[in-house]
Amino acid sequence: MVADSVIKLENVWKIYQFDKVELAVLKGVTLDISRGSFVVILGPSGSGKSTLLNMLGCLDLPSKGRVLLDGRDISKMSEDDLAQARGKKIGFVFQQFNLLQNLNALENVMLPMIFQGKSETERKKRAESLLASLGLQDRILHRPAELSGGEQQRIAIARSLSNNPEIIVADEPTGNLDSTTGQKIMEILINLHKDEKKTIVVVTHDPAIADYSSQVVHIRDGEIATNHLNAEKVLWDK
């Protein structure tokens, strides 16, 4: 498999300025997320892993260095172009699910497709099939508040898939779930990687997940401590 990269970080710095004090959260991180890989980012709190994930998700711009999305420098894109590209190529799964509370499951899943200008029939069809594939066919008209955490996270995963993105960025997707439910969510992500060949980046505390991955990145104090490419070691078919 030729390792062409979906997202590439080149010597990325993120520096926050507090009055006269500078705080570097990322210190020259270089990371290549190749197409079809399953990357796990591990690190203690405050290590900069969320900031790193925001960079990978193109939610934030680097202070120094370059972030390339499909070979394009995101710092050089307009805010609107970047939003458009993000909506099309990146799917997000958050720890807090981040569903819109006043929309039902179906509407939440259809939302990213609105911004890509898809027709209503197309949106509805796609959202329904995504929700059904995640076992939520009976929940499509429920609002997030009426659903369990696991169900909400599955809706969020359906939403992240709505525009058929190249990469799914998950920020501690199991952090707010009990272990059984969390495991199910991880299984969904793993299946997406296996069956649909999606590129997946997961930030987690859970070392068990690392076993599934093709690449484990340890981050400490804003720097990459280790970056194991262990794709060869992992047997996906168990």
Partner: peptide, 9 residues
């Protein structure tokens, strides 16, 4: 959230 999932300004 809206911006993350692709809403323009």
């Amino acid at each position: 959230i809206l911006k993350a999932v692709g809403a323009k300004n």
